[in-house]
């Protein structure tokens, strides 16, 4: 007669405990996000009470007189991010195109090379920017480009052009990786149908692949946008740290994260609350981008699935 073992604890109970345990592992961390807002908001409140909502639009920056405004930093963040995207998106689009078309080990090695760009720590980008790119821009690039409108006549290597360029190199591998995935997901039959009609490779990309994967491509762009907006160290070294609104691309300026990084250690009193307020603005900005991107991806996924 076979012996039937009796369990000490029933398997169903073990499973229930397991499920609760795994949930308990992840839930508190998620609630952390709410904590972010709460803490930053709490610490930023005195600044908003002192300067009001106009703080966001003011251009004062006088630590001695305790008068601050967030506009230069916000504008700086927007300008660097926008410049970086302007450079990175077309570049990563064509790079992704090339990588997807290259077959075999060469394609893999090249893809991995581009991915390695993402692995380099941001402070190394900052060092490279400060010691190599800035002199290079100052001596060999900027003197020849001052005739372009909005580029500015005064330059010293630092500024938004350099910062935007470094940011572009930093976010290129991220956007490129997502675009590669999107290109690979396009059904071959659609592309073959296009080739059968006599289109060139570029026309197929524009008319077929891009239309099919538009939402994925946009998601990748949003991802790059979020990363560029929050990047601190690389921008800090090359932005020039001048608290004014830029009028030209070669001007120096500041971004929210650069202001935070360079001033927080020695700040005290109202200045500290102001920096927290800037942090809150940056958090809302990048979170807004994230939420928008997530919602957009979910919405368009549902739309595509719904129409099937």
């Amino acid at each position: 007669m076979p012996v039937i073992r009796k369990h000490l604890i029933r398997p169903e109970t073990i499973d229930r405990i397991f499920k609760v345990l795994t949930l308990a592992g992840v839930l508190p961390a998620m609630l952390l996000i709410l904590g972010f807002f709460a803490q930053l908001g709490w610490n930023a409140l005195p600044a908003f009470r002192e300067f009001g909502v106009g703080f966001i639009f003011s251009t004062d920056w006088d630590p001695v007189m305790n008068s601050y405004g967030a506009l230069p930093a916000i504008v700086g963040t927007l300008v660097t991010t926008f410049t970086a995207l302007l450079i990175a998106v077309p570049l990563s689009f064509v790079t992704a195109l090339f990588l997807v078309e290259t077959r075999g080990w060469l394609g893999q090695v090249l893809s991995y090379g581009v991915d390695l760009l993402a692995a380099i720590p941001s402070i190394i980008y900052g060092l490279w920017g400060l010691f190599f790119l800035v002199p290079f821009m100052q001596l060999h690039v900027q003197p020849y480009l001052t005739w372009i409108p909005f580029f500015g006549k005064n330059y010293n290597g630092f500024g938004f052009a350099t910062a935007g360029f470094i940011l572009a190199v930093m976010i290129l591998p991220f956007i490129c990786a997502i675009m590669r995935d999107v290109f690979k997901m396009t059904p071959a039959i659609l592309k073959e149908a296009a080739y059968g009609c006599g289109t060139t490779r570029w026309e197929t990309t524009i008319d077929v692949t891009m239309r099919y994967g538009a939402r994925g491509l946009l998601g990748g762009i949003f991802l790059g946008l979020g990363r560029a907006a929050g990047e601190t160290m690389a921008v800090l070294f090359v932005i020039g740290n001048s608290p004014g609104i830029p009028k030209a691309l070669f001007d120096s300026g500041t971004t929210i994260s650069a202001t935070l990084a360079s001033n927080f250690a020695e700040a005290d009193g109202m200045f500290r609350h102001v920096l927290f307020a800037l942090g809150l603005i940056l958090l809302l900005l990048s979170l807004g981008i994230q939420v928008l991107a997530q919602w957009w991806l979910n919405y368009s996924t549902r739309k595509v699935q719904g129409s099937k």
């Binding site: 996000i33 972010f36 803490q39 929050g230 927290f276 979170l287 994230q290 939420v291």
Partner: peptide, 17 residues
Amino acid sequence: NIMMGIPSIITGLFIYA
């Protein structure tokens, strides 16, 4: 996904607080 998008300096600020 949201957490992955938070700038690292904001995380530092939060832990500081």
